[in-house]
Design a protein around this nucleic acid. Structure first.
Lengths: 218, 218, 218, 218
DNA sequence: GATGAATGAGGGTTCATTCAT
DNA sequence: GATGAATGAACCCTCATTCAT
């Protein structure tokens, strides 16, 4: 869960250099996918030598994993921010959706996520899954459970499964704002102009999720 | 939507050979992704020459698109089957979920879907999106609308957006039964043994979706 | 010298079909060179099957040689026409130059010649040389000799060598009207607009050749 | 005229390695033509990796152009040497012819020239033409003009056209000592043993050219 | 520790030629 | 004789990784 994928040397170089490498690598991987990303090019664009990259990371794969992990930590911070507030739970959901709309557009990170699941390299996918999902899984599940305790969310549903369903909706929504494929899919479902109707989307998704989770009257 | 990606010659060869090629290609693409799939290997494993493959398809990309489209048509048939029955709408949803459980396990097709969105080749992704989603988008949206007309589904929600949310859940569920990455994610959310608890999953998802869509009492 | 490069079958098919094949092949070879010409494409464009082409010619090479030989015979006819007249010899030269200007522009045949010498396949080149040059060599040499006998051309020069020098000039002139490379070279020597100044070219070349061959006043 | 076709890296490697690569490439291209030359083979024979070749040159085409340009510079040096002497102009011509005889035999370079014009790749041909001919065109034209000024060469002929005719003769003569096809052609014109009668050739060609250019008596 | 030149296996694609119908 | 589908060797080029300096 906390393993690092880089070699110790990477942690000893100036922060600025480290961040430049990660920024360039994130952009390249998210734009081109794992296979089509060229390590030599990343090195050049980050202003370091290939040799150095291989001093910091054993393989292309390790660099990729490091980039993903850095992204996860960023995501974690965003989500935590939303949840730590003390608004009623259902209103937190609205915040999440708005946050997705704001951060996912043009987000290299989300595109990266979209691509991971498809990584031809199955073992790579598995390795990422755990650390990546632990974050949101944990947060969503805790949220649901809290809501159930407070009586704001129905108790007759498994917190994990509800969190799973919720994340299914949110994950696909993220992709819909970040990846061409899902953008197109979103339009097919909701109309050509849906990417410009953010308030409508928030309203509708909240409505859907709210009913799904709310304690049934009576 | 109806364009074919193969050359006419491909349609003229014996059905058995055609299916062998598609079966091998589907397996290879879904196991290795687009980039890591070797056309020469597909040819060898399908028992034809590379030359022949290139007589049937202009490029690797066209073969890939053909494989995807064949999968879409299969998916279409499965979904149509479920929806054409005259069960009450909410019970149809249960059928869909069961159908996902049955067909997604070991499904090269679904893995393929998972991979498409991530295709480094953005234009390829866009090209597939429309024809692929038109199928389920159409079916789900029609279903919701029908439900609204019959009074089984709440009218205060946009049919397209509801269908979108529904498909988000189902799509991710499909991936969860087909791709390593999503399997792992599923376990993180719902427990190590979730892949063996199909009835529980059906029950929980139905419960979630039902509330989400159902007409609110009173 | 008179060997044919095709199989007997080629001579038995309808003349129209035979000529269509040669016409298409000549165009293709002259536009793309030997290596870049695709036999399957020639077949398709000539409206016959590849199988048939290989019934008529053992190899791509044989087809090429046949095309070249057909071209030689055409050239032969043109040249003979010029020389058989009974104009004074030096005025015949003018006719040759004008004939070159008229026939070489857009001439697949000449481009073909230009390419032969460079055929990577050395043996192919040698094979063509004899039959190809015998034509003009014979005519030019006979012409010079005739001129020497008539006293129109200096006797202190070897007829063969003079014919060789003459053909060097004419051959390169032909290429200069037919092939991009030599066109460019021509422009470098004689100015950007030289390809539009035909009379000037005739005048200058005649002037040069005339002095070269003419009996020196004494 | 001064553009290089290689990447900067090529200029930084040891001269010996650079020359080895150019030597091997020149040989391969001149023996097999552009299309039939195998880059991987050049690499192996030059004792470097394919990867390196592609570090030095973007494409096969660029390597070819570099080889040609190197040849042009060599030709330039030879020609300049001949012309810089202060012999009377017509005697310089004799030097050129002797120089052709000496350098063209077994000259990969000249064979290369012979092949360029025929390059299936028309754009490639055009690109080479300018830089290649500028050299000899310039020298020959300057020579003629100088001769005209000095009164050694007739003034009633255009310097560029005379240089063109001259180069036509010399170019074909070069090919006649270097390429199989033109060797054969030479024999057809001047007899089977012509390649062994160098003095005769010099004498005859000088005689031809001299009359062509010389001021007419009286 | 940093560099970046060097490596070479690997893969998409073409096309001359064959041969079963 | 005609057809054209099938074959598969061959080649240009890429890029993850290594290693001498």
């Amino acid at each position: 869960m906390n393993q690092t994928h880089c070699k110790p040397t990477f942690l000893k170089i100036p922060a600025q250099k480290r961040e430049k490498i990660l920024a360039v690598a994130t952009r390249e991987f998210s734009e081109n996918g794992f296979e089509n990303t060229n390590i030599n090019l990343i090195a050049k664009r980050a202003g370091v030598s290939v040799g150095s990259i291989y001093k910091y990371f054993d393989t292309k794969r390790e660099l990729f994993l490091t980039v993903v992990q850095a992204g996860i930590r960023e995501l974690e911070r965003t989500l935590e921010g939303v949840y730590e507030s003390d608004k009623p739970i259902l209103s937190k959901l609205e915040s999440v959706i708005r946050s997705i709309q704001e951060t996912s557009r043009d987000s290299a990170l989300i595109r990266l996520y979209g691509g991971i699941a498809a990584q031809e390299n199955a073992s790579l996918a598995r390795e990422i899954a755990h650390e990546m999902e632990s974050v949101s899984a944990g947060i969503y599940t805790r949220l649901i459970r809290q809501g159930q305790e407070r009586g704001e969310i129905r108790a007759d549903i498994d917190a994990g499964m509800a969190a799973f369903a919720l994340d299914n909706i949110f994950m696909a929504l993220q992709f819909s704002y970040a990846c061409e494929y899902y953008e197109e899919r979103f339009r097919v479902y909701a109309g050509e102009d849906i990417l410009g109707r953010d308030d409508f989307v928030v309203d509708q998704i909240v409505r859907f999720v709210k009913s799904a989770l709310q304690k049934q009257e009576e």
